[in-house]
Each structure stands twice: as structure tokens, then as C-alpha cells.
Design a protein around this nucleic acid. Structure first.
Lengths: 186, 186
DNA sequence: GTCTATAGCATGATAGAC
DNA sequence: GTCTATCATGCTATAGAC
């Protein structure tokens, strides 16, 4: 064959990673297969050598997205004691608000995931519960606080992105940072 | 003319209200003009007697959506002292999670609003600031708490909708209710 | 104001050449 | 595995009859 043994897997990986960013920035439904493929230098026809349908890509994309989030937010056993605090700060950053393509999928694809298949939602749920349990341990067993901090962060980013002025954006972020700090300590 | 003087305004109103629910349930971009019109018993061609483009409907729809939210959440001067507490409870309800078409637009159209025009975002911002100021007054001037409660609520609904099991949905809602109660009092 | 018909384009998906 | 070509359908928007 004209292609190396690992070529297919590499192309698939590139497609998923590229599509993750594109979907988070412009929406998944709103983006065509041609656009997703041309973003990695291929044409639309080649898509179906990798996925049976556009929906299958969405499932793969969300799965990688949550794996990535878990890695970033849950952290390993060697994480510093202020791991949660560091996560909260970087999550509630201006950079995160201005770069949805590099950020948390729940703030951009949340509604599309909610409309997706039970299989997709089941994987998201599993990942979120893992996240929440990990944080609960780091928060002296306070499971409400773990869910609460996650909700606080997600809501703040959604709000900060729907407003127009930079001033209000910063106001929302600053308030939310103070609120999570208070929640985190109290 | 064959139509009454108020007919156009009535049709426009019906279209906006019908489209609000449809967009919140299935997404605005994902829904065609034909579907929006046939939902009120008309054909697609008639759409352009009311709006110059699909985007103009989105702007009108979001504007009514935020007017509605302000009316529900801000309340008037004759609202009871536990107005905020009542709002939080009804917002963080199972009904809200299961009926996006009747709920808060930020939890469903947030990402689409974020990608929309500056004009749309400016109106959303104005409405949110009004909301937040109103709640700040009801919360003894604590503006952080007002922003924080809003973020907490929005994030909790988004999270509750992306999970599959009813158990986890209830767990998220219950935790969030306890968190906002603690925030509200503390 | 609403209808049907249609332009013009984009979409998701398939077929066959290489 | 990727290409081009294509099918069938969907879309936004317009034109003209009523």
C-alpha cells in the first residue's frame, strides 16, 4: 500500500484534534465535513474512511475532550496541595474566555452534548463523576463543594462570553474568582 | 388588504415565541427557516415578510428571551423578601433541566450568543447587568454574590443536562441547591 | 401577507479511479 | 487512503401569483 501502517491512526488523531478546536470555536453542527477535513489538508470524501458518519466523529471528539479535561483538572497523586486552587485560577482566566477553541468543552459544546446520544452523555457523565470524586478528596470530602466549584466555573465562562464589553467580562471573572476562593476556603 | 391591521404584528410575535422554544430545544443554527415557519402554520417563503434574514430573527428572539428572564428573575419592587431564594429554587429544578425549551436561554443558546453579533451581545450584557444590580440590592450590596449565584445556577443546569443518568442529574442539582443556599445566607 | 416555485449554494454521504 | 465526481437533500433567500 502507498500509506504507512500508522498513517490511518495518525490521520484520525489529527482529524479529532483539529475538529475539537473547530467545534468548540464555531459549533459542531454548524461546521461541515468538508471544512473539518480541509483543516487537516484533506478533502471531504476521505472522511468516511475514518468515521461512518459525522456523529461518530462527535462522539470521538467529545471522548478525547473529556479525557483531556480530566488529565488537566483531576491531576495525579503527585499533584501539589494547591492543585485545585491552580486549576480554578487558570480556568477562570481571560485567556480561557477569549479562546474557546482551547478551553473546556462544556462551556462551548454543552448544549450540543445535551442533545447528543445517550452513549455520548454516559461517557461525559462518567468523566464528570471521576472529576468530582477526585476534587472531593482534595476538598476534605465535601462533595457539594466539588460540584459547586465546577458549576461556578462553567457558568462564569458562559456568562463572560455572552457579554460584549471587556469591562463586564473582567467584572464577571473577578467576582467569580473571589467567590470560588471563598467557597474553596470556607 | 385581506389581513387585519394587527395581523402582521401578531404573526411576528407568534414566530418569535415559537422560535424561542424551538431554538432553545434544538439549537438555532441547526433549525431551518422552513421548520420555524411551519411550527406556526406558515410556509418558509413568508418568513421574509417579517425579517430580512434568519440572523435578525435570532436577535429579536434573544431580546425577548432576556426581557422574559429579567421579568422572571429581577422581579418588581413589590416582590417578597425571599424573592431571590424562590428564584434559585425554581431555576435549579428538575423541570428546568428537562425542559430547555421553557428555560433560561444562556444554558442553551449561550455558545451561539457568544458567536453572534456585538449588537446581540451588547443587549444580553445590558440585561445581565440589570439583573445583577437588582440582585445585588437584594443581597445587601454584595455584588460578587450576585454574579456568583448567577454563574452557579447556569453552570449547574448545563452540567445536569450533559449527564445521562437521572441519579447524577439529581445529585448535581441537590449539591448546587445546597451551595447556593449557603452562599445566599453566608 | 402568504403562497408556490426556484435560484444558488452547502450539506452528509456514496462510487469509482488511482 | 485519498482523490474527484456525484447524488439527494437541505439550506437561505428571492420572484411572482393571489
Amino acid at each position: 500500500m502507498r500509506y504507512s501502517a500508522t498513517h490511518k491512526q495518525e490521520t484520525r488523531d489529527k482529524l479529532i484534534d483539529s475538529s475539537r478546536a473547530i467545534a468548540k470555536k464555531g459549533g459542531f453542527d454548524s461546521t461541515g465535513v468538508d471544512a473539518l477535513m480541509s483543516a487537516i489538508g484533506l478533502t471531504g470524501g476521505a472522511f468516511y474512511s475514518h468515521f461512518g458518519s459525522k456523529g461518530e466523529l462527535f462522539a470521538a471528539l467529545v471522548e478525547r475532550e473529556i479525557d483531556n479535561s480530566n488529565e488537566m483538572l483531576a491531576g495525579g497523586p503527585d499533584s501539589p496541595p494547591d492543585h485545585v486552587a491552580k486549576c480554578l485560577r487558570s480556568y477562570l482566566s481571560t485567556f480561557h474566555v477569549l479562546h474557546p477553541e482551547a478551553g473546556c468543552a462544556l462551556t462551548t459544546l454543552g448544549p450540543e452534548i445535551a442533545r447528543s446520544t445517550p452513549q455520548v452523555r454516559a461517557k461525559v457523565e462518567k468523566s464528570m463523576k471521576k472529576m468530582q470524586k477526585n476534587w472531593t478528596e482534595r476538598l476534605d470530602g465535601d462533595s457539594d463543594k466539588a460540584w459547586g466549584l465546577l458549576a461556578q466555573c462553567i457558568g462564569a465562562i458562559v456568562m463572560a462570553r455572552v457579554v460584549e464589553s471587556e469591562r463586564t467580562r473582567q467584572e464577571i471573572l473577578a467576582s467569580s474568582r473571589r467567590v470560588v476562593e471563598k467557597m474553596h476556603r470556607g
